[in-house]
């Protein structure tokens, strides 16, 4: 799966990012092939989220480059809005707009950015909501939904514009196990549909399940990368082994 001959959808090339004195990413290189799922694992603060935020241009990289479909999106001449239009993001804290109902949350970008008519945007949104069992909640406001429902709405908001790549930043970190299941099953469906995804997660069992490619981040670099079976079954690096055994002790794998 990861050895597809076509050019990667998303490509990180020695990306460096610092916050003041602190080096968060220290030359991260990674290819994300089309129709594949890349999972970033690693301790908190290892740079997983920062890497995703850089890809969506929410952070400006210090050095290196990020390519989306062969275009250097970190070039200062690039129109950042046009890049973001091709990328879908789901945040850990959902980040739904509390002043808009579910339907408007999903259709806002469709109508204002992609210039889809309201009727068409709502039709699409309802179709997706229906598939996720949320059609009845279309007119509800985010604060009245459970965390799992909110996160599924956030997923719909991210995929409704058919982005080239979907970035999921610890989307289940704020949910209880029951709700985690309902959100992750949506992610599994998205994989079935062949969507290209990069996700940072602490759900190791899930990561092992869906990942075509697993990257272990530590000290600002990808210390180990391989297929799910390689990284979880036969980790080469001592740090990876220690990380995974800690995770196992915590009963999360």
């Amino acid at each position: 799966m990861s050895t597809v001959a076509t050019a990667p959808v998303l490509r990180f090339e020695s990306v460096r990012k610092t916050f003041g004195e602190q080096v968060i990413l220290d030359g991260v290189s990674l290819d994300v092939p089309e129709h594949s799922v890349t999972v970033l694992i690693g301790a908190s603060g290892s740079g997983k989220s920062t890497l995703l935020r850089c890809a969506n241009l929410l952070e400006e990289v210090d050095d290196g480059a990020i390519w989306l479909d062969g275009e250097d999106v970190t070039d200062p001449r690039v129109d950042a809005d046009a890049v973001r239009r091709r990328i879908g993001v789901v945040f850990q804290a959902y980040n739904l707009f509390p002043h808009l109902n579910v339907l408007d949350n999903i259709t806002l970008g469709q109508r204002r950015v992609h210039k889809v008519t309201r009727a068409e945007a709502e039709r699409r949104a309802l179709e997706l909501l229906d598939r996720l069992g949320l059609a009845a909640k279309a007119k509800e406001y985010p604060d009245r939904l459970s965390g799992g429902q909110q996160q599924r709405v956030a997923l719909v908001r991210a995929i409704v514009s058919e982005p080239r790549v979907l970035l999921l930043d610890e989307i289940t970190a704020a949910l209880d196990p029951e709700l985690v299941t309902e959100v992750l099953s949506v992610v599994r469906d998205l994989k079935e549909q062949g969507r290209t995804m990069v996700l940072a997660t602490h759900e190791m069992a899930f990561a092992r399940d869906v990942a075509d490619q697993v990257c272990f981040l530590a000290d600002g670099v990808i210390l180990e990368r391989g297929t799910s079976a390689q990284v979880f079954g036969d980790p080469q690096h001592e740090r990876t082994r220690r990380f995974l055994s800690r995770v196992r002790e915590a009963g999360r794998l």
Partner: peptide
Amino acid sequence: DDTGVVRPPYVPSERRLAREAYR
């Protein structure tokens, strides 16, 4: 592995310098 990966000290790349000049 314990000591981490040995990396040469960071030197800004041509790309970074060009970007900064452009900005």
